[in-house]
Write a protein that binds this DNA or RNA. Structure first.
Lengths: 216, 216
DNA sequence: TGACATCGTAGACATCGTGTCTCGTAAACT
DNA sequence: AGTTTACGAGACACGATGTCTACGATGTCA
């Protein structure tokens, strides 16, 4: 396993870096954040301990780098989803739905909150603001066309959206996550039940009242 | 400072225990979770290191105990708020509003998410379920009287509520937190704009459209 | 009041993770 | 082929850990 020399030398470094990040995430998920150690990471990644120090100065930095990778990845996915849709309202719904599903898949590490507490880093804040900005802009645009409420600043509504949808991580099924998006979108339309808003929320699969799991 | 001997011996132990928890929370908030050490805690709490080991086996346990204390405290406050109100709809709104304000005050440690990642402990899950259960029951009761939507299980709606309101921690003002509660409640009433629902959400202070801060 | 249990403290101890360094080896670049 | 770059192993001092002992101070009970 220690032999993962690939093509160019630069590609190799990236491969090792990724292996480090993956190993760290694995260990953190397995034994908790506080117990992750440089020695463990090195061993798990199949590299020497001294080598590890040539990539990262400490565990903190590795966790930050891992978080950065997650955020960048997700931001790219969400931007792609947005650009493949037309109309602010539709775009927002598509993005929020994608975000909910990402939150669900990322059960456990809670991308944001994690490093925010781990060590409030400026980069983390800025990364989160990118996502926040994307949602905010869509909300502002949608408010002008009447798709969303305009009695509350898009800024605050974006915060509401992102937090509400992290609930997806605690939900048991994809269908439940979809319903969560519906509920969240409801909060964005108070007093704006326009005739054509059946396009999104109401086009849900029809369930005979009271769906979803009741126990944990 | 090392002399905090009070009344009975049992009261003393509780005082020391609290001092330990407070010191730990302080250190964690200051230098991040991973850097908190038993030595630091002992010094900060004004007790000997060996003494600390007679209260808690490791940092992990202290953080868990601290989390337990927070949850219990907040649960009590919320139950009190609930019992001082009448009617499921009003009760829910009161509890959610209180929860939003607690979340705001607890900026930083994110009661739940914290230990959930720190080390997923069964006690943490159960504590959170108590709060979840309180909200769920109020939602179920309110759904019967028509105050809330009944097309989605109260269980899922409760998850939505709790996550959405943690957004309060990121909001800049109490007024913004109030608006957040309004938006969140909107999500619970989709398709249920009964004639008398002006009692809660609509009795907000009247702001001339577009309120709240736009920058962070 | 005196005997005793309990608590806190300081110090010692082996163990482990850390961060840094050197040296020898092997692969990639030019 | 010669140079650059990366890796691994071992060594090192240092700090944190978890445990233990001995000793002083305090609360409890006869």
């Amino acid at each position: 396993m220690p032999k993962l020399w690939n093509e160019t030398i630069d590609a190799h470094r990236r491969a090792v870096r990724d292996a480090i990040l993956n190993s760290t995430a694995e260990l953190a998920a397995e034994h908790g954040l506080r117990s992750v150690t440089m020695s463990q990471i090195a061993e798990n990644a199949g590299i020497g301990r001294a080598t590890l120090y040539k990539y990262f100065p400490d565990v903190e930095a590795i966790l930050l780098a891992w978080h950065d990778r997650q955020i960048t990845e997700h931001l790219g996915q969400l931007a792609e989803v947005r650009d493949q849709t037309d109309g602010a309202g539709e775009q927002l719904e598509a993005v929020l739905r994608a975000f909910a599903h990402i939150s669900r898949q990322s059960r456990g590490h809670h991308g944001t909150e994690l490093s925010a507490l781990l060590h409030r880093d400026e980069r983390v804040v800025r990364a989160q603001q990118q996502l926040h900005g994307m949602i905010r802009d869509l909300l502002a645009e949608g408010a002008q066309t009447g798709a969303f409420r305009d009695d509350i600043a898009p800024d605050e509504l974006a915060t509401y959206c992102l937090h509400a949808l992290t609930a997806a991580a605690a939900l048991p099924s994809e269908a439940a996550a979809d319903r969560l998006v519906t509920v969240t979108l409801s909060g964005l339309r108070e007093g704006h039940l326009t005739p054509d808003n059946q396009s999104s929320a109401s086009r849900q699969e029809h369930h005979g009242r009271r769906v979803g799991h009741s126990g944990h």
